[in-house]
Every structure is written in C-alpha cells, then in structure tokens.
C-alpha cells in the first residue's frame, strides 16, 4: 500500500483520537514501526493491521472509521490539500461526480505507484447516481462515501449517500443530489494555492 494512504490513516487517528490513541493502535497492531512515511511503500497487510487495531482500541466499527477517514483526508487544511486538488476536477458537485472515474488517473499522474480504487459511475437520471468502487481494501466504499460527503459540503451541495454493501463487483455507493447549490461553495481559486 502506498505510504500516502497509510500516513493519512495515521494522521487521521492521531488528529482525531490523540497521540496516545495512535500509540495504542501501534502497540495493538504490532507494526514494528512507530509511524508511516507518505512517500514510501508498505506491505498491504500493515494497513489491515492498523484498521483492525484501531477498531478494537477505539471501539468503533470499521465502517465508521473508514468513512471518517474519507472525510478527514478532504478536510485537512494545508496549502496543497486534497480538497484543493479534488476541486480541480469540477466546477460543481455534479461535475465533480462525473469526473470521479478519472481519480485513479489523476493520482497516477503525480505518483505513478499510487493505486487508488477503481471507480465506475452510473447516472440514473434525476440527480441519482451510483458509484461502484473496487479495491483490495474491504470497506473502501465507506472511505469514498466519507470523501463524497466532505466534497459535497465543499461545493455546497445537499446530497444523500448510501452504502449498498459489497456485491460481486465491488462496493456500491448511491448518491442522490437533492440540491446542487444548497449553500455557497467554499471559495476555490485556480491559481492561488491555499485558496
């Protein structure tokens, strides 16, 4: 697994539940390291160990943790935040949703070994969509759902999200856009980093 994902998981747990909680997760997961570097690659099993340990130590369901992780990675405020990078994908939430399938390509343009989930969007008309997510990580749909929720907030859209659970071909998240412009979008300026 790319260190960026493991590192995000680490920062999410540390920022949300505190440094002591992260230390407890490290001990429980028997990681053999104190933390992840975002630019290195780690064995996939380590990610699973951390998620399992976090669920146990923090007494949270895997689903909740992963959805919160998805929201966290968007909402982190730093100059080259993921929120900003994602906003380049579309001028409004619908536009953004339509560009979701490009996400793995967008990731690979910058980090060639970054394996993001394979995404497939179906437009059912009337603002109803479904997004099929395929990745080796069980529960990836919950991360995507958290990310969509945060991005909808960012664009000021009112959306209803639902995770239909795994089926043969991945996990399906349904999206209903109730109001594309429910609240004003957070400012986004193409050329000004940090805006």
């Amino acid at each position: 697994m790319h260190g960026l994902i493991n590192r995000s998981l680490q920062c999410f747990l540390r920022d949300t539940y505190g440094a002591a909680a992260w230390d407890a997760v490290v001990r429980e997961a028997a990681l053999g390291l104190t933390g992840f570097e975002s630019m290195l690659t780690y064995d996939d099993a380590l990610t699973e160990q951390v998620i399992d340990a976090a669920a146990l130590v923090l007494r949270r369901s895997r689903e909740t943790l992963l959805e919160d992780l998805g929201t966290y990675i968007v909402n982190q405020d730093n100059p080259t935040s993921l929120r900003r990078l994602l906003r380049f994908s579309g001028v409004n939430f619908t536009d953004f949703l339509n560009a979701m399938e490009e996400l793995p390509e967008r990731g690979r343009l910058v980090l060639p070994d970054l394996d993001l989930p394979d995404l497939e969007l179906a437009d059912h008309g009337g603002g109803q969509f479904s997004l099929r997510c395929r990745a080796p990580l069980p529960g990836v749909g919950h991360i995507v759902m958290g990310l969509l929720r945060a991005m909808a907030d960012d664009y000021g859209a009112l959306v209803l999200l639902d995770h239909l659970g795994p089926d043969g071909g991945g996990e399906v998240v349904t999206i209903r856009i109730a109001d594309k412009a429910f609240t004003p979008a957070r400012p986004f300026n193409l050329g000004v980093v940090g805006a």
């Binding site: 960026l4 570097e37 630019m39 080259t80 990078l85 380049f88 910058v110 980090l111 980093v193």
Partner: peptide, 24 residues
C-alpha cells in the same frame, strides 16, 4: 489548462513531501 494547473499543484505537494522525507 485546469488539468495542467492541477498537475503543477499536485506535483509541488509531492515534491514537498519528498523533500521532507529526504530531510528526515
């Protein structure tokens, strides 16, 4: 153009992360 701007910004972020790693 917007994709190019995305790339420049994402690349800057990745370079910063790499520089941070190199320094550590």
């Amino acid at each position: 153009t917007v994709e190019m701007l995305y790339l420049v910004e994402a690349n800057t972020g990745a370079m910063q992360a790499l520089r941070g790693l190199a320094q550590r």
